[in-house]
Simulated scan of single mutants.
Amino acid sequence: MPTYTYACARCGTFELVRSIARRTDPAHCPGCDRLGARVFTSPHLSRLDPSLDRAVTSAGLSSERPKVTRHVPPAARPAPSARPGHPALPRP
């Protein structure tokens, strides 16, 4: 579930984890129990799963600085069959 930021007139800002359906509902401040309105902030990307964070970071880096290949990689050759009934194919 997403984390939303709300503002209380007395205590300042606080964060709540709630469903998207309840995102616009006012929230009770955990300090004074007054109602606080939602504050629109940037997404909380710092709380991503570590593997997802690495994927997002590497995707951003590759779009800015793609790796340049200076040679054609060698072709992968299939492994020979271990079964004696399979004849070897001629090589070009």
Rank of each mutant, 00 (worst) to 15 (best):
V17S: 11
T57G: 08
R91P: 03
S51F: 11
L45S: 09
P87C: 08
P78R: 14
V68K: 10
R38N: 09
P66F: 00
S42D: 13
P84V: 00
R83E: 12
R83W: 09
S51Y: 01
K67W: 00
A76R: 15
V72C: 03
D25A: 11
P80H: 06
P90S: 10
C8F: 09
G12K: 04
T13N: 07
T57E: 08
C29Q: 01
R38D: 10
S81C: 15
G36D: 03
L45R: 11
L35T: 12
Y6C: 03
S51I: 01
H28F: 08
P92S: 04
P50T: 05
S62T: 07
C29G: 04
R23M: 08
F40H: 14
S63C: 08
L52P: 11
F14W: 04
D33I: 03
P43C: 02
A21K: 06
D49T: 01
E15D: 06
R70M: 03
R70Y: 05
A82K: 14
E15G: 09
A88D: 10
R83C: 10
D49Y: 10
P43A: 15
E64C: 14
H44S: 12
F40E: 11
S19K: 15
V68R: 15
K67E: 00
H86L: 09
R65H: 09
L89N: 11
P74F: 01
R70V: 12
L52G: 03
P30H: 11
R65V: 00
R47Q: 13
R54N: 03
A76V: 01
D53F: 07
I20R: 13
R77D: 02
P74M: 07
D25T: 14
S63V: 03
S63G: 10
P80F: 08
R23V: 11
R23W: 06
H71S: 03
H86Q: 10
P50N: 04
P66C: 01
P84W: 00
A79G: 06
C11E: 07
P50S: 06
K67R: 13
F40M: 08
E64F: 12
P26C: 08
H71A: 02
S42Q: 09
E64Y: 11
D33M: 13
T24N: 12
S46N: 10
S19L: 11
L16T: 14
S81K: 03
